[in-house]
Write a protein that binds this DNA or RNA. Structure first.
Length: 447
RNA sequence: GACCCUAUGGUCUAGCGGUUAGGACACCUCCCUUUCACGGAGGUAGCCCGGGUUCGAUUCCCGGUAGGGUCGCCA
């Protein structure tokens, strides 16, 4: 029988990074096995569900490259979808739930209670077969012993999560459920309901949670908890996917960088770990840098352009060739596109600021004559090209009896306002003679 | 309070009775170099604790401790 898995997020207005990882694992499992990946929107809590909130999820999934075989085509609950098991919005499945509630009542597993409907839960310990952690025998807690039954339909007529989740998995023929470990305890309820329906439950696999770096639970407000921040801060989606795949799963061969194709090939349930993982921003940052360095020049230009536009640089004031040339000097230098603004901002500024401390350090009285000579040598250059610039600077350094660095640092500071940046000679070429001389003069005037 | 899961350097992890405990991020040193980044060489740092089982435990069992999760007419 073909494997059918699903990702069933609730439209809360953002896509939690842990939810994205859950989606990824399910997607990888479907692709690895040649199965079907279903996207179902759990919007039973009508009050806080909006089309915008659903779009956030769809956009996030698409950004990561996780396509679904069945599910909504738009964020509109009443809109089009694909697949034979719809509707894929729970808000549209009311009739199915009504029928299933009646079935439970008829079988004696459900009863009315003060306007709500409750499920008659077993009083015995429930064995939860879990393909990740093994069989888990779940005993009733003290509170559950006092009242084991739980509400499946609210008094306002709305069915609750535990019930619709089970009904949908059943109706949609879901064979495997990979979900966060926070659902493990509740799975006893789900298993009991499947039994009440007389149906074998799907194979459950509870994957470990993603925690903050300090070990606390990563909740909505924590930095980096929303996938959206990675989209907005210019991360490469492949890097995010790669990093996420390494949290709670291991290829077990010391590989760190894996393409989507490799992930699909290697991903399997036995590789899923059992312990929670802390989100290490530094490692994601490293991976992002790897992907940025290896991407094509064209894509680097494109993503770099978008990042600079987000950062509100007045790019329209510059020729496209200039912007591209500027971007090209940054390739292999930044590990994240959000760094591009501070790194390359001097290309698009009217003037740069050179800190007084930098003037004091680099533009010393003894260095001043050399810098003036350099400035004039630059001014005399017919062709303002990197090779010529390098030649000129090294010639001045040689005849002055100093290392190139003595001239390089002040020049960089004068032209960019920074101590680090793209290759000096190349950035000077891009900046052009006029700008370089202007900035040189402005810095010299500060001495 | 009860129930459940987990436990290898700071972080992600390999390991599945005998290993100099391996890799990656981060950090430190050096080399390369026009800065940074990259690359190269090296380094600091780890099996939570206590009992068993065994000739031998990081590895198996039990207990403790710690972390996380769950017990909603939220999902």
């Amino acid at each position: 029988m073909s494997i059918r898995v699903r990702f069933a997020p609730s439209p809360t207005g953002y896509l939690h990074i842990g939810g994205a990882r859950t989606a990824l694992f399910n997607w990888l499992y479907a692709r690895h096995t040649g199965g079907t990946f279903v996207l179902r929107i759990e919007d039973t809590d009508a009050a806080r569900n909006t089309q915008e909130a659903v779009d956030v999820i769809l956009n996030g999934m698409r950004w990561l490259g996780l396509d679904w075989d069945e599910g909504p085509l738009t964020g509109d609950a009443k809109g089009p979808s694909k697949g034979d098991f719809g509707p894929y919005f729970q808000s549209q499945r009311g009739e199915i739930y009504k029928r299933r509630v009646q079935e439970l009542k008829d079988k004696g597993f459900a009863y009315d209670h003060e306007g709500a409907v409750k499920f008659r839960m077993t009083r015995e310990p429930v064995v939860i077969p879990d393909i990740v952690v093994g069989d888990v025998t779940r005993e009733l807690t003290d509170r559950e012993q006092a009242d084991p039954d739980f509400v499946i339909v609210r008094s306002d007529g709305q069915p609750v999560f535990h019930f619709v989740n089970v009904v949908d998995d059943l109706e949609m023929n879901i064979t495997h459920v990979l979900r966060g470990e926070d659902h493990l305890s509740n799975t006893a309820k789900h298993v009991a309901m499947f039994k009440a329906f007389g149906v074998e439950p799907p194979k459950y696999g509870h994957i470990p949670l993603i925690l903050n770096i300090d070990g606390s639970k990563m909740s909505k407000r924590d930095k980096g908890a929303s996938l959206n921040t990675y989209q907005e801060e210019g991360f490469v989606p492949e890097a995010v996917v790669n990093y996420l795949s390494l949290l709670g799963w291991s290829p077990k061969n010391n590989r760190e960088k894996l393409t989507m194709e490799e992930l699909i090939q290697l991903f399997d349930v036995p590789g899923i770990l059992r312990s929670n993982a802390k989100f290490d921003f530094e490692k994601l940052h490293w991976l992002d840098g790897e992907y940025i360095r290896e991407m094509s020049p064209e894509r680097f230009r494109q993503l770099g352009l978008e990042a600079l536009q987000r950062a509100k640089f007045p790019l329209e004031k510059f020729p496209a060739d200039y912007v591209n040339a500027a971007l090209d000097t940054c390739r292999g230098k930044v590990k994240n596109f959000a760094e591009l603004g501070p790194y390359a901002g001097f290309y698009f500024a009217d003037e740069v600021t050179v800190a007084p401390e930098a003037i004091a350090k680099d533009f010393t009285p003894e260095n001043l004559p050399r810098l003036k000579k350099l400035r004039d040598a630059f001014a005399r250059l017919e062709e303002f090209k990197a090779t010529n610039l390098e030649q000129a600077l090294k010639a001045i350094a040689a005849e002055s009896g100093v290392k190139a660095g003595v001239l390089v640092h002040p020049t960089r500071m004068a032209c960019t306002g920074n101590t680090a940046g793209p290759s000096l000679y190349h950035l000077l070429e891009v900046l052009g003679k006029e700008t370089v001389l202007n900035r040189f003069d402005a810095a010299l005037a500060q001495v």
